[in-house]
Each structure stands twice: as structure tokens, then as C-alpha cells.
Design a protein around this nucleic acid. Sequence first.
DNA 1: GTTCTTACA
DNA 2: TGTAAGTA
Length: 115
Amino acid sequence: MRISELARTTGASARSLRYYEQLGFISPERRSNGYRDYDESAVATVRTIKTLLDLGLPSALIEQILPCTRGKKVEDQCPAIVDQVVALRDDMDSRARDLLRTRDALTESLTRIGR
DNA sequence: GTTCTTACA
DNA sequence: TGTAAGTA
């Protein structure tokens, strides 16, 4: 299928689809006229990409996860992925604490000037 | 008319 | 990411 159709069925813009290709997430064939030609599997792949991106996973990690999404459980095919997700979660925790600390310091300062 | 690449906001 | 420009 052409890019507009894949865009319609996945909800991703044609712009994003080309970007995903740049990142190496998808590799569509090319028609004689130069148009990209996506196979049915691209639909599922793009949906996975969108989901992972929404979850905030870095593209570098998504790149490693995609090849493991063929079967059912990613953790069965690529155990190493789990460790990276745990690391990501812990990092999020760390950043959240820092943000909270900064927010409290800000509130403290603001309180002193009556705001 | 649709898509492509490149580039700018 | 969206959009504009100039093509094929």
C-alpha cells in the first residue's frame, strides 16, 4: 500500500511514517515511480511504534524492541529488553523526585514573598 | 492528483 | 512534526 493508505489506517502522518523509516523502524519497498510500497505487516509495526513512543520510550530502545515483537511475548524473545525497561523506569523515578524537589523549593520561595 | 526530497519554523 | 517548494 502507498503511504497515504498506511497513514489513514494507522493514524500516523505521512511525515511520521517517513521519519520512522529514517530511524530504521520500517523499510518499505520502492515502486518504479519512486513511491514507497508498504506491506500489510507495516500496519502492526507502526501501531507498535506509536504505542511505544507514547509510553515515552527512547527511539534507541524501540529500535531494539521492534525485532522482538514478532511472537507474543517480547520478554521471552529478548530478555535483555526487560533490564533496559527497568532501568528506564528507575530513571523516570529519579527524575520525578528531582522535579518534585525543585517544585517544593519553588513553593517555599514563593511562600516567603506571599505568593 | 499523489508522492518525493529538502528545508525552514 | 507541519508545511511549502519544485519535481517526477
